[in-house]
Write a protein that binds this DNA or RNA. Structure first.
Lengths: 229, 229
DNA sequence: TAGTGGTCTAGACCACGGC
DNA sequence: CCGTGGTCTAGACCACTAG
C-alpha cells in the first residue's frame, strides 16, 4: 500500500492552490481519481470527504464534486476551559467565589433558556485569576432542576464551571461572542475603568431537554479568541 | 444493511449522556463493539472517529478509547463571508470604498505578517451596509507582491474582500476576535459614539509562504458571533 | 511484545437528484 | 433514467505504544 488518503488530501489541496482545479470547477469523480492515482475508491472518498468537511469542496450526488467558490470557510474552535487555557500559558490558576444566591433570572435570559418564571435558579459569580491577575469574570445562573446536586455543592475547591462540566451530561447549547462595555461590577473586579470595551461570551447549556445554565463571562481587557485556519 | 455509522454514533452518544460510558472510562474496543452491534469494524471506526473529532472521545492506539473528561469541547465555526452573512438574513448588501492608498503598514501589523519595511502595501478601507445600515467597517492592508493583480483591480463592483478570496489561493492564516472601543473613524462610519464597545476581527492571510493581507474589521454595535454546539 | 486503532482494498448496494 | 457520492463488508497489514 503506497497511497494513503493523506497523500490524496495533500495532492488535491495542491491542485486547488495551483488553480489546476479552479474555484467553482468540477473535479473528476471518485472512480476516475482512484484509477488515476492508483488506489481504491474508498481512499479517494476519505480524502475528498475530509476536504469537503473543511469547506474546500462541495459535493452532491449526481452533480459531482466542485471546488468551493470561497474556499476554506470552516474552522475548528476549541471551547475554552478556563483553567486549561490559563495553565496552558504556564500561569497559575485560581478562582474566587464572589457571590452565590437564590435569585430569579432576568426575563431575557430566562426566555433564552425557555424557563418559566417559577423555575428556581441560583446566581453564582466567580472571578478567575491567572498568576493573581484578573482573567475573567463569570456571571452564571443555574437552573437547579437541570443540575441535580448543584445546590448541595460547595464551590470552594471546584468552581461552578468545572462542577457543571463534570456532572452534567449536556448535549447542546449555544455560544456567542460579543463586545460589552465594563459596568461598575466588571470594572471593580477586572481592574479597569468603567466603559472599557471587553470581550464577552454568553453561553446557554441544555442537558438534552432541560435548561441547565446560562453564563455570561467578561474577559479582562485585551483578551482575544484565536482561530487557526 | 441495517446498521449505519450514524446509528452507532447516536448510540454511543446516548451511552455517554446516560453515563453508561462515564467520563474518563475506557469503552470496548472496535472489534468487540462491532460484534456486539452486528456490523463490521470499519463502521464502528467511522462512528468513533467522528466522535473523537468532535471531542467526545479520546483515542490512542493500544491504550484504547476513553470518554473525554470534559466532553464536547470543539465546535465548528463558519468563517463569515460578509456578503453571505448579510444576504442570509434577507437583507440587501452593499459596500462602499472609503479610501485606497499606498501606505506602509504599521510595525505591529507588519511584524505579524513577517514583512520587511520595504514591502509595498496598499491600505483599503471599506464600509459594508446591510439594508443601508452600517454593518461592518474593514481596514485592510494588502501586500502587493502577495496578491498579483490587485493593484490593477478597480474595487467598485467587487470589494477587496471578495477579490482576494477569489484570486488568492491561500492556505493558512489566523483569525482573532477581540473587543475594541470605537475610534473617531469607526464612530463616524458605524454611526455610534466614540468609545462604544465594538466586536472586532483581525485576520492575517498567507498564500502558502507569502503574506497576502492583514485585515481588521469592526462590526456595528450589538454584533455577535454565534457558535452552535 | 502484544493489543489497539489507523488504514487500504475490492466489491457491492443504495439514495439522491440532475437531466 | 442513470451517474455520482454515501456507505457497508470482510479481510488484511501496519503503526504506535502501554505495560
Amino acid at each position: 500500500m503506497a497511497i494513503t488518503w493523506q497523500d490524496i488530501h495533500k495532492e488535491a489541496l495542491e491542485r486547488i492552490h495551483s488553480r489546476d482545479w479552479a474555484p467553482g470547477a468540477l473535479i473528476p469523480n471518485e472512480a476516475d481519481l482512484a484509477a488515476e492515482l492508483g488506489c481504491s475508491r474508498a481512499t479517494v472518498n476519505r480524502a475528498l470527504r475530509a476536504l469537503a468537511e473543511d469547506g474546500w469542496l462541495e459535493r452532491r450526488r449526481k452533480a459531482g464534486t466542485r471546488v468551493a467558490m470561497a474556499p476554506q470557510r470552516r474552522a475548528r474552535l476549541a471551547i475554552p476551559i478556563l483553567r486549561e487555557a490559563v495553565e496552558a500559558r504556564g500561569q497559575s490558576f485560581a478562582h474566587s467565589l464572589l457571590s452565590r444566591e437564590t435569585e430569579a433570572m432576568p426575563p431575557l435570559e430566562r426566555a433564552l433558556l425557555g424557563l418559566s418564571a417559577e423555575a428556581v435558579t441560583q446566581r453564582v459569580r466567580t472571578l478567575f485569576l491567572a498568576d493573581g491577575q484578573p482573567y475573567a469574570l463569570e456571571d452564571r445562573w443555574v437552573h437547579l432542576d437541570g443540575a441535580p446536586g448543584f445546590a448541595a455543592q460547595e464551590l470552594k475547591e471546584v468552581c461552578a464551571n468545572e462542577w457543571l462540566v463534570q456532572h452534567t451530561p449536556f448535549a447542546r447549547g449555544t455560544m456567542d461572542y460579543l463586545a460589552s462595555p465594563a459596568g461598575p461590577f466588571e470594572a471593580r473586579h477586572l481592574g479597569c475603568p468603567e466603559g472599557t470595551a471587553l470581550l464577552a461570551m454568553e453561553r446557554a447549556t441544555f442537558s438534552p431537554d432541560t435548561a441547565v445554565t446560562f453564563v455570561r463571562t467578561h474577559f479582562a481587557p485585551g483578551h482575544r479568541v484565536r482561530l487557526e485556519l
